[in-house]
Design a protein around this nucleic acid. Sequence first.
DNA 1: TACATAATGTTATATTATAACAATTTTAAT
DNA 2: ATTAAAATTGTTATAATATAACATTATGTA
Lengths: 132, 132
Amino acid sequence: MHKEHNLTKNQQIIFDIIDRSPEPLKAYSILFNVQKKGIKAPLQVYRALDKLVEIGKIHKIESRNAFIACQNSSCQVSKATAFSICESCEKVTEINNSSLSKYLSNFKDKAGMKYSKYNLEFFGLCKKCITK
Amino acid sequence: MHKEHNLTKNQQIIFDIIDRSPEPLKAYSILFNVQKKGIKAPLQVYRALDKLVEIGKIHKIESRNAFIACQNSSCQVSKATAFSICESCEKVTEINNSSLSKYLSNFKDKAGMKYSKYNLEFFGLCKKCITK
DNA sequence: TACATAATGTTATATTATAACAATTTTAAT
DNA sequence: ATTAAAATTGTTATAATATAACATTATGTA
Ligand SMILES: [Zn+2]
Ligand SMILES: [Zn+2]
Ligand SMILES: [Zn+2]
Ligand SMILES: [Zn+2]
């Protein structure tokens, strides 16, 4: 479970926009959308994004430079994330699969390196796009 | 196995630099290093990078916006990639583990979406950095 | 209170990546 | 060899993403 964090004003504004969006949002798209609320500079957005990622309220989709709200209260504060990405419509879904997360959390490579974090992105076509 | 591709001059120059590097290289770092060889513009670098990624000779480390040479002739032309990243020294290694690649290649999510590609990045501390 | 920590506001700048268009080279078929 | 298509290159300009530096304000807490 996530530890509760009291979001600050900027953090809450930016989280709300991401949380309401059906698709991942990019930083400057967020910026344009919050300028009427007094957030005028990129840094204000990036700082809120950094904090929200840190506390696990949002995740960055690295291959898209975009952010989505966490759909998965059991993902250990952004330490273990997996997403499916449709390469046609760009729909992104957070994968919540205990077999997968167990497998990856326990994975050890030959070098004996133990991992504290992972991020996995699957690419393909979503159901809607396959039938097109 | 990789299909053989005859690299063009620019592609070869840029591949060689990445291949010889002990660490992932960023596009503009590559650019600075090849300016003496006549490659002057970012686009020349990005076009070569795009092609090299497409044919599987290099991979992009998404979380770092950097590129490394493929260490793994059996990774199906960039369709199934996994890396370990040391968060201290930034050493990146391509993981070649058949159990992992089988597990991920066969993974199906609840939505029935079948994936054609994945990228996995593990983060942690390498052996050298753990003991520091 | 007073101190430390976190968050904010602001300007400027750094870094990463693509658009648009013309020219050249390579490939493969006639 | 001729030719047309496809791929690659060269070039300038610009878009998109992200951080540095510094001053200020708010918040938590001893
Ligand atoms: Zn999550
Ligand atoms: Zn789709
Ligand atoms: Zn590879
Ligand atoms: Zn290390």
